[in-house]
Design a protein around this nucleic acid. Structure first.
Lengths: 137, 137
DNA sequence: CTGCATCCGGAAGGATACTG
DNA sequence: CAGTATCCTTCCGGATGCAG
């Protein structure tokens, strides 16, 4: 709880914020933060084709640390987006897979990833130009 | 959302990233992070209906501090998602508006919002069950 | 009105070493 | 192989003050 939900504002729409009502705003922010978590999105995207092992996940997501991978998987399991299946074999094998709920989120997540991929170059150019202009001034 | 190119992939889970190019991985993480940023999402959503002044933005987004609003706006401008227009008036007036690029991101983000609104009850229940089970074991 | 600068506490996140 | 535990650095983000 970052801020208290004291007396509701008169909902003055000088700047329209109708999409997120005050009472749901916090919940929306929490879930979007979770769904939009930088590692969470990539993990979900990696699981789109079926179960993946822990080590394979780590290799498939460049730059993620074991700590963050474990932590992210725990959060995703907690939200019911991912299942964990451990096989009692001599070389331990654990597979993670999307739940039905996670699969529904996959659509929105892939849209986001594809958007990023589509506009990647444009954004990089925008950033370079912005930084150059800022430096000039 | 053209992510239908997965059906043809040989399902090689041993290699790095199936979906996003390795050289874009870092930027994609940054972009997803931006999209998942709680303040960025709220700012973009508030700009959905047209230009909004700085003070109106601050009032429309409950809980945001001046520092974070300025910082978020700067990041969004840097990525080319938002434009800033200053009117040289005696009482200074500055309006922020979505660019075309920002509008396309809004679509992807809205999908996330809608998903969150649809499944937030289920997620809350999942979390409660997960925490209970974890405490019991 | 708009926004940058600074300080500061706490959370996020990486590196490493170790266990079943 | 699949994690856990610890340390430590970075960064997020709020509060305050000041400037254009």
């Amino acid at each position: 709880m970052t801020h208290d939900s004291r007396a509701e504002q008169p909902l003055d729409r000088t700047g329209p914020c109708a999409r997120w009502p005050a009472e749901q705003g916090e919940t929306i922010r929490q879930i979007v933060e979770r769904a939009g978590d930088k590692w969470g999105v990539l993990v979900i995207g990696t699981l789109e084709n079926g179960p993946v092992r822990y080590t394979d996940l780590q290799r498939s997501i460049p730059g993620i640390s074991q700590r963050m991978l474990t932590h992210t998987l725990r959060q995703l399991r907690r939200d019911g987006l991912v299942t964990r299946t451990a096989y009692p074999e001599v070389p331990p094998r654990v597979e993670y897979a999307l739940t039905g709920l996670g699969a529904t989120l996959l659509d929105a997540v892939t849209a986001l990833i594809d958007w990023a991929g589509t506009h990647h170059d444009e954004i990089v150019r925008n950033r370079a130009r912005f930084d150059r202009d800022a430096a000039g001034s």
